[in-house]
Amino acid sequence: MATGGRRGAAAAPLLVAVAALLLGAAGHLYPGEVCPGMDIRNNLTRLHELENCSVIEGHLQILLMFKTRPEDFRDLSFPKLIMITDYLLLFRVYGLESLKDLFPNLTVIRGSRLFFNYALVIFEMVHLKELGLYNLMNITRGSVRIEKNNELCYLATIDWSRILDSVEDNYIVLNKDDNEECGDICPGTAKGKTNCPATVINGQFVERCWTHSHCQKVCPTICKSHGCTAEGLCCHSECLGNCSQPDDPTKCVACRNFYLDGRCVETCPPPYYHFQDWRCVNFSFCQDLHHKCKNSRRQGCHQYVIHNNKCIPECPSGYTMNSSNLLCTPCLGPCPKVCHLLEGEKTIDSVTSAQELRGCTVINGSLIINIRGGNNLAAELEANLGLIEEISGYLKIRRSYALVSLSFFRKLRLIRGETLEIGNYSFYALDNQNLRQLWDWSKHNLTITQGKLFFHYNPKLCLSEIHKMEEVSGTKGRQERNDIALKTNGDQASCENELLKFSYIRTSFDKI
């Protein structure tokens, strides 16, 4: 039985969820670079991206490699990797027998973001014989899940209580170790020597080791999670996991709180800001991140802002960003909400898709409305799209047979046209069989910064309504002859009103 693990408890099935942008060198404390989270699957090609990484700022997932063999891993080693800020997950990587050479110096898994409450997941690794993470000293947050690894031993010899604050939620089941077939031998045991430290858990006094050649490092209890030197002297209180010299914040392997210019500090002093819960960055760093993602459509890219001495992905609820200094300031009234469309555009074809934009005031991208039916549609669209004030790209209304009016965009005031449909149009209306009105132009103002209007096959939309939009939106004169079809717009509506004058002759039985 794995020490510190839980057996036999019912657990939810383990679901495996399925960018080499360097964020800056980590400095003297770390020998390499800070790398983003990685999802490495199918083959070993991307694994080489770990070569210079000291910190993975995010998670590391290595999974679904069915053609790899043990010899493929023999020359692979990433000794610079010290810390993973989120979680480490391995799933069905064939041929991998140990992690001792792959990650010989991995010391800390912070667990800032977890995989279903777990910071370390080893699942269905069919050839893994031992973990071998002999320098792993601290899992700051989260638990361990090690399950269905039929060859995995050296679990009962690990004292997880020396690595985690609590072992109650560890789930370590259905491994070879369960069948008591392992016969784990710690260093020196074969020669009758006791080389590794022994600890007591559940009444068992057991030597602690990761492999037959690597003991588990056990520091004096007084050192807590700070770690200790090879001689057993406690590291500085700002260290986490390990250090090369005692009581020196510049000799830590990793930091308990924050890293700044080669030393570990309790908090980031001005003019620095907390970033990702582990390091200090200056304003320029946060500003660069903001600008890199301002026009990016890459998933996970955030326009970072500053709030409460932190550089964070977005302002919290009730705050909006001051564009001059990136500071989050309290909103006066309802907060603006910028919604970034991942692929640059979004099609609204149902109430469900409209709900995804609920509360958005600025759309960074283009909207395509293609709704053919739905219950209580006008009210639903207004509830979900009615706060949109600005669209950076274009607005396209296409084959939306259920629409009679666009009044559900009740606050839309600006279409920038930074991206144009077919390279020309910022407003595009095609084949809307029941569209009769755009907006009530006596109450609604709309500016279209650039781009043209396109109207074709809107049989109940009168040309007068379209011409009014040209005047109000500032697009009059931009359109070419064929942009607004004269014969297919309003051709099934009563669009022309003329005053009919009647004269009559009164007659009676005795007068003409």
Rank of each mutant, 00 (worst) to 15 (best):
G188D: 14
P316H: 02
C293S: 03
I312P: 03
E207Y: 06
R256I: 06
H226S: 10
P330I: 14
P70Y: 05
N138P: 00
L131S: 02
N257M: 02
T157V: 06
F258C: 05
L260P: 02
M65E: 13
N150H: 06
N138M: 14
C239D: 00
S143W: 12
V34N: 06
S244Q: 15
L131P: 01
L233C: 02
D184T: 04
S323Y: 12
L88H: 00
C53H: 00
I185H: 07
E33D: 08
P313N: 02
Q299R: 09
P70M: 10
Y171S: 10
T229K: 06
S161C: 12
T199I: 13
S213M: 14
N322R: 14
I84F: 00
S112Y: 08
K294T: 15
L63E: 02
G183F: 10
F123A: 15
P271S: 11
A198W: 12
N42C: 13
W160E: 00
C234P: 02
C219Q: 01
F66H: 15
S323T: 11
K129I: 08
I82L: 10
H274G: 13
E238N: 08
P330Y: 11
V121L: 03
F285I: 05
L327R: 10
E33V: 07
P31N: 15
T320L: 06
D288W: 09
C153W: 01
L50H: 01
H290E: 02
Q216S: 04
C328D: 00
D39E: 14
N43V: 05
P334N: 05
A190S: 10
N308G: 07
D261W: 03
G262I: 05
G241L: 02
R256S: 09
Q299F: 04
D86T: 01
E231G: 14
N149K: 01
I139E: 00
N150G: 12
N105T: 07
C301I: 00
F285W: 14
I139A: 02
I139Q: 01
A230W: 13
G58V: 00
D178H: 12
V121K: 00
H28M: 05
P187L: 09
Q299M: 14
G188C: 13
L164F: 15
C219L: 02
F73I: 12
V167C: 12
Q299W: 03
R263L: 02
K80W: 07
A190R: 11
F116M: 11
L128F: 12
C228G: 10
Y134M: 14
P246T: 03
R256Y: 06
L64R: 12
L50A: 06
Y94F: 04
C235K: 03
C255M: 01
Q287S: 06
T221E: 11
E51H: 15
M137W: 11
C35L: 00
C219V: 03
C335Y: 07
C228Y: 04
N195E: 07
Y94L: 09
L131F: 04
N309A: 09
V34A: 04
I146C: 03
H59S: 09
P313Q: 12
H212F: 12
Y304A: 07
N138G: 10
N202S: 11
D178Y: 11
C182V: 02
P70W: 06
P249D: 11
L99H: 00
C335K: 01
G318S: 12
I82V: 13
I62P: 00
V265G: 01
S237V: 08
C252I: 00
E207N: 05
P187T: 13
S324N: 09
F258P: 00
S143I: 08
G183M: 04
K67E: 06
S225H: 11
M65Q: 06
Y154K: 10
F78P: 01
C223P: 01
R41C: 02
P270T: 05
Q276K: 09
C255H: 00
N138A: 13
L289Y: 12
E151L: 10
N202C: 10
G232F: 05
N282V: 03
F285D: 04
R141P: 01
C53T: 00
G318V: 11
I109F: 01
P197W: 05
E71P: 11
H28V: 04
K80V: 10
F258T: 06
D75H: 06
T194P: 14
K224L: 13
C235Y: 01
A198F: 13
G318F: 05
T68V: 06
G142E: 00
Q245V: 10
L106H: 01
L233E: 11
E151C: 07
I84P: 00
C264M: 00
D261K: 07
L128N: 01
H214I: 07
G300W: 07
F91G: 15
V167A: 12
N308A: 13
A230H: 14
D165E: 14
E124Q: 04
L240V: 07
K100A: 07
G32W: 12
R74K: 13
G111V: 00
S98F: 02
R298F: 11
C234G: 01
Q276H: 06
T194L: 12
I185L: 11
S143N: 12
C239W: 00
L289F: 09
C239I: 00
N308V: 08
F205W: 14
L60K: 01
G333F: 06
K148I: 00
L29T: 11
V218C: 11
P271E: 05
T68N: 01
C223G: 03
L88C: 13
Y87P: 03
T45H: 06
K217A: 05
K148D: 06
Y87V: 00
C255T: 00
C234D: 00
V200S: 14
V200T: 12
P187I: 13
F66W: 04
S296A: 10
N105Q: 11
R110Q: 13
R298C: 09
G203C: 05
S296D: 15
A198T: 09
N52V: 02
L133S: 10
R297I: 07
T140N: 05
G318T: 03
H214C: 11
S98K: 02
L88I: 06
C264K: 00
N117C: 12
S323F: 14
G111R: 00
V253E: 05
L44K: 06
D165W: 09
I201V: 08
S324Q: 15
G232P: 05
F66V: 11
H307T: 04
T85V: 09
A156D: 01
V305G: 08
D75G: 03
P316E: 01
A230Q: 15
C234Y: 11
S323R: 14
Y304H: 07
F275K: 02
W278T: 02
N43G: 08
G192P: 07
V218K: 09
K292S: 05
P334M: 12
G192C: 11
K191Q: 07
G232D: 07
T107P: 00
L102W: 15
E314A: 12
Q287T: 09
R297Y: 04
H307D: 15
I222L: 09
S112W: 14
Q287A: 12
S143Y: 02
C153E: 02
R145P: 00
C252D: 00
N309W: 13
P270G: 04
S323C: 06
G241N: 06
Y134K: 01
C252S: 01
P334Q: 12
V55T: 07
L60D: 00
N202E: 07
F66I: 14
S98C: 03
S225Q: 05
I56L: 10
H290G: 10
D247N: 02
E151A: 08
H290S: 11
L99W: 00
T250R: 07
L233M: 14
I62Y: 00
H48R: 05
E238W: 04
R145M: 09
G95M: 08
I306P: 02
Q245I: 15
Y154T: 11
E51V: 12
H127M: 01
P197H: 10
R297V: 08
P197S: 07
P330N: 14
M38G: 15
M321R: 06
N295H: 15
P330S: 09
K193Q: 03
F205T: 12
V200A: 10
E238G: 13
A119R: 00
I163Q: 02
L114N: 05
D261C: 02
C315P: 01
S98N: 07
R74F: 04
L260F: 08
N170P: 04
V206P: 14
V200P: 13
R263P: 01
I40R: 00
K251V: 05
D169A: 04
L102S: 01
V121F: 05
V253G: 04
T107V: 08
C215I: 04
I139C: 01
N43T: 06
S323A: 07
D288K: 04
F78L: 10
G37I: 05
L106N: 04
R256A: 10
C331W: 03
H214M: 13
T221A: 13
P313W: 09
P36D: 01
L99N: 00
C209Q: 02
K80D: 02
L96N: 00
K294G: 13
R41G: 14
A198S: 12
M65T: 05
L89V: 00
Y273F: 13
C255P: 00
C35N: 00
I312F: 00
F78A: 03
